[in-house]
Design a protein around this nucleic acid. Structure first.
Length: 576
RNA sequence: GGUUCCGUAGCUCAGCUGGAUAGAGCAACAGCCUUCUAAGCUGUGGGUCACGCGUUCGAAUCGCGUCGGAAUCACCA
């Protein structure tokens, strides 16, 4: 139970004892006290005036007195107008610190028993990953870990878009213009080489629009299983997958299940028949099949072309049905940009019209576009900012900053390199994940590599600082422990209060599917610690009990930061 | 045109299930390293929370409208 919940229930008792009326729980609002006022938590008494029939200050005073008299955890209060500021006792905070320290699974919520599939990344094999893809990958991966921490079983899935006209375009360009070039012969990363083919094709088609007919013939051959076309397709896809694997590895991203569109693009056709039988779908005279959604405020949606081939929606209907059956899912989350809001609205609606009860367990985690300073990026015109370049640039920047400080002098090159990667990646991940997923965000490559202020490296640095102190303490044979005699300073109480709110933050973040909640929490905690650090010497403390308590507090802060940042996929170094 | 989302400091973002004087970072300026890591800390300046009306004891937060921006409405994916 959180302190807020505890005080809210105590306040309910107070109201009943004082006024003989049970207050509606929603009228007992307890929040953290603003920092310019004395107190830990604040009860807003305005909603209770109806019951007390007294002035705000009088009501606040009465409840404050009752709580102080009847609740040992409450050490004092002050009433400012309608705000009752409550202070909790030092004993309460000391016990809270003891509880958190002893709780090995602190921050991991009890099991919900729910199994959730999270689909993300779902790359197009024509295009190297750009910042929009990075946001998708980082969000998907982080939300998966977040849902795990919130007590769910999570299956990370991706659907590789490995077939279709667009792939044939790259294949066509490669055959015509690339003279047998391979990643090995050119030294170009596989996904980039194929991306170059796609760009080259776009240019070619502009000059010779008739080449599209050749591409369509190629697609027909692919569908017929023509050995030569299939062989080329497999070869080029192989290059792309090798390239993607490298990038995924660099980003620290993995999947439990990979689906390929060439396996799934025919799914959903049976559902079309089912819809026709039940009258949910209609067939037009030309043979095309539609679902009429005008009564729901949407348009008519095509589900089967007049030539009998399926569209993207058809496939999505089929894969959703298969996944819910295959994994007995309780829920399915699609991490896809908000440009596809309409698509997912239709998907859910059509599935529920088909009678699937799980249709309302489908969630579209609709994240905002990533904009670059020069305007929206267009991969067809060649990638403006590429994921691999970006990762490399962050690494270089981390190295430069670190070498300038000289703090890592004397440790092995290999270890340094690992740290540079950790820091560069931490900066990139934090920069993207600290923003509310729903919001359109601006990605300025110049600003993203800033390592000061509200950034990943700031939190990593804070962690390294703590580790440095703990290392020195350990070398001196000092132990960390919170004794019952320990007394916490106001700053220490603030830190414990923040730490104690962590499980609640995990729950909030999971509810909102927003890793940004944890990024902000981590920043607040790190900032609070740095202030504490500057005014409170730890290792020089003369009192052994206090010193041991501080070491314990530091260890708990470090652990909490590791947990929260771990959910964002960001590692924290022990030195930097 | 219909629908959906967005508009908070010069810039990037918090705050939004209604609560006290709207917060950080960056950028600018002024300080702090014989003392546990200065990737840090302290201070100064910077706001009509796009605008208007409404609901409320109380609105950045909720509702309606206006203006501005974005996305989407394909026999594309």
């Amino acid at each position: 139970m959180t302190a807020e919940q505890f005080l809210s229930s105590m306040a309910a008792q107070a109201v009943e004892a004082l006024y003989g009326v049970k207050a509606d729980p929603s009228t007992l609002q307890v929040s953290v006290t603003r920092k310019d006022f004395e107190g830990d938590y604040t009860l807003v008494v305005f909603p209770l005036l109806r019951i007390s029939r007294q002035a705000p200050a009088v009501t606040a005073q009465a409840i404050g007195e009752w709580l102080t008299a009847n609740c040992p955890e409450v050490s004092g209060f002050n009433a400012v107008q309608g705000f009752l500021n409550i202070s909790l006792s030092n004993v309460y905070w000391r016990e809270t610190l003891q509880d958190v320290t002893a709780d090995a699974s602190f921050g991991t919520l009890p099991s919900t028993g729910r199994r959730i599939m999270v689909e993300f990344s779902s790359p197009n094999t024509n295009k190297p990953l750009h910042p929009g893809h990075i946001r998708n990958n980082l969000l998907g991966s982080s939300v998966s870990d977040l849902l795990k921490a919130a007590g769910n079983e999570v299956i990370k899935a991706t659907l590789v878009n490995d077939r279709g006209v667009h792939i044939c375009k790259s294949m066509y360009a490669w055959e015509k213009l690339f003279d047998g070039a391979t990643p090995e012969s050119t030294g170009i990363k596989g996904d980039h080489l194929v991306g170059d083919c796609y760009v080259a094709y776009a240019k070619l088609e502009k000059e010779h629009p008739e080449v599209i007919d050749d591409v369509h013939r190629m697609l027909v051959k692919w569908e017929e299983g023509d050995p030569a076309v299939r062989a080329l397709w497999e070869k080029m896809n192989g290059w792309v997958f090798d390239g993607f694997d490298q990038t995924y590895k660099a980003l620290g991203i993995s999947f439990d299940r990979t689906y390929y569109e060439h396996d799934t693009y025919l799914l959903g056709k049976e559902l079309v028949q089912k819809g026709l039988d039940s009258g949910v779908f209609v067939r037009d005279p030309d043979g095309s099949v539609w679902c009429d959604l005008t009564a729901d405020g949407l348009d008519r949606k095509l589900l089967l072309r007049s030539d009998g081939t399926s569209v993207y929606m058809t496939q999505d209907l089929g894969t959703a049905e298969r996944r819910f059956a295959e994994y007995a899912l309780d829920s399915h989350i699609y991490v896809v940009g908000n440009e596809q809001d309409y698509h997912f609205k239709v998907l859910k609606l059509v599935l529920s019209k088909l009678g699937f009860g799980w249709a309302d367990q489908i969630y579209h985690l609709s994240y905002g576009m990533v904009e670059l300073p020069e305007g929206k990026m267009k991969s067809r015109e060649g990638t403006v900012v590429d994921a691999d370049d970006l990762i490399e640039k962050m690494y270089q920047e981390a190295r430069a900053t670190s070498e300038a400080s000289g703090k890592l002098d004397g440790i092995p090159e290999e270890e340094k390199d690992r740290l540079y990667r950790m820091i560069g990646l931490g900066a990139l991940k934090y920069f993207i994940l600290k923003v509310d997923p729903k919001k359109t965000m601006l990605f300025d490559p110049k600003e993203s590599i800033d390592f000061n202020g509200n950034t990943g490296p700031f939190i990593q640095y804070t962690h390294a600082r703590i580790c440095s102190i703990l290392r020195k303490a350990s070398e001196s044979g000092l132990d960390a422990a919170v004794a019952d005699e320990s007394v916490l300073s106001p700053k220490e109480v603030r830190l414990v209060k923040l730490i104690a709110s962590y499980p609640q933050k995990v729950a909030e973040a999971a509810e909102a599917l927003s890793p940004a909640v944890l990024a902000n929490f981590s920043y607040d905690l790190a900032k609070e610690f740095n202030q504490y650090y500057h005014e409170t010497p730890v290792l020089k403390e003369q009192d052994a009990t206090t010193l041991a308590m501080r070491l314990s507090l530091l260890g708990t802060i470090a652990r909490t930061l590791r947990s929260a940042m771990g959910i964002l996929g960001i590692e924290l170094p022990e030195r930097m």
